[in-house]
């Protein structure tokens, strides 16, 4: 018998799942606690980077540790926006069309990535947005404790 040619393809669908419980560390853990307990957004003033939000425990520029906590506003300016037309199941945080944004919060020198769900047609670089917080009791200590951002005014 010769090697197989034009065999009817055989395939199997499979969902691979990895349950990971990730340690946050000192800085990310306290930043997330600030979202959950205080409804406040904290950054770190890091040499060479300015006020970094969301913060790391080290400088991404020179890898030095350190920095001090600085509270920034939960309102800021969009620096980038992309509107997802058809969200992908088990990946995107919304079933309906939504936008990803980078937001430079007032008082921060870097931009925070998040989502906007309403008035998508009005979103543009330079537009002002404000955080919408998940209600008390529903904040779990993740970046999604900010439910989304919405346009100001």
């Amino acid at each position: 018998m010769k090697a197989p040619t034009s065999v009817e393809p055989m395939s199997q669908r499979m969902t691979v799942q990895f349950p990971y419980k990730r340690s946050t560390g000192e800085v990310t853990g306290r930043f997330l606690a600030g979202l959950k307990e205080q409804k406040k957004i904290w950054g770190r003033r890091i040499a060479g980077q300015g006020v970094v939000v969301p913060p790391n425990s080290y400088s991404e520029v020179d890898a030095k540790s350190g920095g001090e906590w600085v509270e920034v506003k939960d309102e800021g300016t969009i620096t980038a926006v992309g509107i997802v037309a058809k969200p992908v199941a088990d990946l995107h945080p919304s079933d309906a069309s939504f936008a990803y944004v980078l937001v430079k919060l007032d008082g921060a020198d870097t931009s925070l990535a998040h989502i906007v769900k309403d008035r998508l047609g009005e979103l543009k670089v330079g537009a002002r947005v404000k955080a919408v917080w998940a209600p008390d009791g529903e904040r779990k200590g993740t970046i999604r404790d900010i439910a989304c951002f919405q346009l100001v005014g």
């Binding site: 499979m14 969902t15 419980k21 946050t24």
Partner: peptide
Amino acid sequence: PPKERVKFIQTDLVLPYHY
């Protein structure tokens, strides 16, 4: 921010394949 940090986050990866 609070001294008592959030120690873990649960990130369950769900990846679809069609082998």
